[in-house]
Design a protein around this nucleic acid. Sequence first.
DNA 1: CCTATTATCCTCATTTATGGGGATGGTGAA
DNA 2: TTCACCATCCCCATAAATGAGGATAATAGG
Lengths: 202, 202
Amino acid sequence: MQLDNKVKKRILLIEPSLMVCKGFAHIVDDMIGYQLVATSLNVGRLQEQIVSARPDIVVFNPQIMSLQHRTSIRSFFNIPSEMALVALVYSFVDEWILSQFDAVLTVNDDQTQIVHKLSGIKRTVNTSVKSENEELSERENEILECIVKGMTNKEIAEKHFISIHTVITHRKNIVRKTGIKSVSGLTVYALLNNIITYEDIE
Amino acid sequence: MQLDNKVKKRILLIEPSLMVCKGFAHIVDDMIGYQLVATSLNVGRLQEQIVSARPDIVVFNPQIMSLQHRTSIRSFFNIPSEMALVALVYSFVDEWILSQFDAVLTVNDDQTQIVHKLSGIKRTVNTSVKSENEELSERENEILECIVKGMTNKEIAEKHFISIHTVITHRKNIVRKTGIKSVSGLTVYALLNNIITYEDIE
DNA sequence: CCTATTATCCTCATTTATGGGGATGGTGAA
DNA sequence: TTCACCATCCCCATAAATGAGGATAATAGG
């Protein structure tokens, strides 16, 4: 028993992988209460599609664009607040990015999980933006880069022509700001925040 | 103009994501000269399917299994040498793992790229296996897991009911075998070798 | 049986890192 | 100007890791 189209939630999918696009379409096709009204392999026509397709839900792969600068996805793409913004990811994505979404789908989700996640969305208009005064300073990023490369405090000090005490101070501040104590955690943080790449290490 | 089934290359797909499975099936469906004869969301029935489906090409997502021990995928799953072994990956995978495959497809490939990659496969029977006597033992992998999770030697010792000296010995052996001294390097090593996932850290 | 590997334990000395405190000068914004 | 932030430097004590030795027992393979 299919529901009337008028009560079906309209989904717009922005996903770079043709394969995932097709698979998503196939799955949504079998889902009651949802319909895929448009898809796109890139973000170029997003605004246009939002207007033309008038989706209720925008499913968006954040990996499609480089979000180094912590821009708000919703405001960057002028996505109306009444539309749900849902992420579709392959693997791990920075929590900060995911926090912008009303729900997070992964490519491994099956139909049941997707329906469950989509039905759990409660759209509320965000009025205030969280204060993010805990970002690392430029210097701290430099030090962090050295840390995750496996350099010792002494080496870092020598490289930057500062005393080891300063390095330790920076480290203390990095730990305080990020809340991450372990080097491995910081490594992941640095990888996710594009401070370093895999190639930088080892 | 469809080719006869007898000359179509038979593809077996082992892929954990239903979405990607569906999408892959959809794409292969439009490809001339290839047919998808079976799919599976896990490796459990791989051997069985190799026998029953008799594929020419086994498309396998290496992320489906944890390959801590640098085992040969082909020999582990008893994949006959006449069958092509092709990887399907989402993002970054250790080069060592990819080197075992005859071709590497990514989820972002379109039909043209997939056909191009599959048609370029030249199967050659490997007679000799590389010597890999520098693999980490099971215990060492356990210790490594703890290290990259940011645990101290003391904590690791307590968790595994061994003395801190033993932990240190294991660490020394891990460093010797991998040639990686820094925690960040080991973190990347562990990530690439599926000993841990991003979620394990922080 | 012998050998290689592994896992376990130990000492000692040295180097690094951590966590707590504090201080100074500079800069840019309210 | 004052205030917040940043980069720089320092002291202290403790905790942790490193590097270089050595040792024993179990186990699996040739």
